[in-house]
Amino acid sequence: MDIYLPIAEQSINILLLLGMGGIVGFLSGMFGVGGGFLMTPMLIFSGIPPAVAVATEANQIVASSVSGSIAQWRRNNVDVKMGLVLLFGGVFGAIIGVRLIKLFREIGQVDLVISLCYVIFLGIIGGLMLLESIQTIRKTSTGQIGSMRKSGHHSWIHGLPFKTRFHRSKLYISAIPPVIIGAFVGLLAGVMGVGGGFIMVPAMIYLLRMPTSVVIGTSLFQIVFVTGLVTILHATQNQTVDAVLALLLMIGGVIGAQIGARTGTFLRGEQLRALLAILVLIVCINLGLNLVIKPDDIYSLAVSIGNGR
């Protein structure tokens, strides 16, 4: 059963798309990750042009982060002020990110740039996750209980100006670090079509020292608006948002996420995290090999999408 995607301008199997949405949704429901960093490479592997994959995935993340942040909002887990500061940075990052994609499209290197970004980020995330889960597995098997390292409050962050009080997070810190974090995440959203939670959540915990209870909700709050903006920017500047593709991924993703969230509660965390880490590394290696191994065909055709068609 094939469907013709109006913007990607190709015919693709519906069940493949629903299945991909479902699998990534399942993983994101189980691990509480956004899934953009898995979905975009999978779309690229299945033949969707990278620029369309990035823009469309941003659109799908709007849907998944809306439902996620509603659940967090109900539990009062959103620091709106912090979210708005992160969003302020995110707007600038998103604008720059989408401009960069447009620029690289014009010089014909957009595929390379997207692949390189993914290899780097998936390598770092997968590697760190694998390391962490192996350590946890070792510790639990030897009966050790890991002690959280709490360093003193003398961090360079406290020396920065523009100090602001964030009531919900019980913090009084400079607004500069959250703006920078937000901008970086917005840049990733524009270039890679990810929500950026995998960068933002650790940054909020370890750099900003926000209470863990508000971290997920606040990052989802920022992601809704940043990915929404990224979608609009890609639509206006690159015409690469495929609404049909996005809708199918949303349907698969929503169902998968529900099943994943239910399954995740019955399974051991660290083994699963190790599996996710391995999966991330496989995707990373696959993308990396495509860049390094001599391609079967050194020639390729590129019809400029949205131009002259």
Binding site: S67, T231, V241, A243, A246, M250
Partner: peptide, 20 residues
């Protein structure tokens, strides 16, 4: 394209609200 972008986002928000 701007209208299209807005509509895409609205579609996503509706889908997200529907799911929750």
């Amino acid at each position: 394209p701007f209208l299209y972008g807005i509509l895409s986002v609205i579609l996503a928000i509706v889908a997200g609200l529907g799911a929750s």
